[in-house]
């Protein structure tokens, strides 16, 4: 379909998968008549009915765990957490139940479901509509974690996630929901496999590994460095668990330098894991320490515009960080 935003691409993926397979169902707060607070499920209830597009009580543990019950009885649920910040009441169900069902039953049960959640900040969402909790879920064996940055990736990866036999946490950068429009393929041609990164800018001096909204910010930073003769290669991971280590390693073997750019606060963020892995794998190729460019370690992003700005990475901050790595 031409000219789709990221949130429309999400909606298209849900629509197509529900058309394709009647086991696919959607549940969450406000997903029905309202079509979701971001309109990610717009029109689905009208098309597929109130049973397959189910408005849930305001209770995230219910949303996750009812989806689990549906999944173990043969459905392919897509649960929506209204904001990733609100997934924590469901954390026990996600981490202790959903992620462990296959393992704890020695392969007898499985839990093929998707939990979608808008993630990240920069939209004046303040402390509780802006968080980037991907590291919590990336730490959990049994879960897969996806975080797309373009409409085509969002659609293709969500379709793959729905078809995946294991539980997938699907984080959608809300800052990008309507940021750009793209022509997006329909049907089977749209599907993109999980676990595959993409090189979105080719460069020879420095590798920037990133994902989500930071892809766009890093691209702007790279354009500035290019004016100084520093060519940054940018890798968008797209899937965080499992993440595509090999694409990153190949790039660093060429550039000899690497930084990880991520929106979450720095300490214990998923960028720390990427940094550690690349330091181990690429030690002999590296001319500089792998560096983290991330947000400050404050509890979350404040509401005040000036404080939000101070928290968020922007092209200036990322360019500064990349230059430090380039000049090390």
């Amino acid at each position: 379909m031409p000219d789709r935003t990221l949130v429309q691409a999400v909606r298209d993926a849900l629509y197509e998968e529900m058309e394709r397979d009647d086991r696919v169902c959607v549940l969450g707060q406000d997903v029905g008549l309202k079509g979701g607070v971001f309109k990610a499920t717009e029109g689905l209830q009208q098309r597929f009915g109130a049973q397959r597009v189910l408005d849930m009580p305001l209770a995230e543990s219910s949303i996750a765990a009812v989806a689990q019950g549906l999944a173990l009885e043969g459905f392919l649920p897509v649960a929506e957490m209204q904001f990733a910040d609100y997934s924590y009441p469901a954390f026990n169900q996600i981490v202790n139940e959903i992620a462990k069902m296959r393992y704890r039953s020695n392969g007898d049960f499985s839990c093929p479901l998707v939990i979608r959640a808008p993630t990240g900040g920069g939209v004046r969402g303040a402390l509780y509509h802006s968080q980037s909790p991907e590291a919590f879920y990336c730490h959990v064996p049994g879960l897969k974690v996806v975080l797309p940055s373009t409409p085509a990736d969002a659609k293709g990866l969500l379709k793959a996630a729905i078809r995946d036999p294991d539980p997938v946490i699907f984080l959608e950068p809300k800052k990008l929901y309507r940021a750009e429009r793209q022509d997006v393929a329909d049907g089977e041609a749209a599907v993109r496999p999980l676990g595959s990164a993409t090189v979105v800018r080719v460069g020879v001096d420095l590798t920037a590994v990133t994902y989500g909204y930071m892809r766009a910010v890093t691209a702007q930073a790279a354009a500035r460095l290019s004016q100084d003769g520093i060519e940054v290669e940018i890798i968008d991971l797209r899937t965080l668990r499992p993440w595509d280590v090999e694409t990153c390693v190949r790039s660093i073997e060429k550039t000899g330098r690497a930084a990880v750019v991520y929106e979450a606060n720095r300490t214990g963020g998923f960028g720390a894991e990427i940094t550690a892995e690349l330091a181990e794998r690429c030690f002999a190729s590296l001319d500089a320490p792998v560096s983290r460019i991330a947000s400050p370690d404050v509890p979350a992003m404040p509401f005040s515009a000036s404080l939000e700005h101070a928290f968020m990475l922007n092209p200036d901050k990322v360019a500064d960080g990349l230059r430090r790595v380039a000049r090390y």
């Binding site: 009812v66 549906l70 173990l72 026990n92």
Partner: peptide, 27 residues
């Protein structure tokens, strides 16, 4: 837990299974 016998696999945190039962019944 046994899929064949229709016994939902359980973990150690208590009360999680009540919601799974609701999900199974919804199915």
């Amino acid at each position: 837990g046994s899929r064949r016998l229709h016994i939902v696999t359980g973990g150690s945190p208590v009360a999680t299974q009540l919601l799974h039962a609701a999900g199974v019944a919804l199915a």
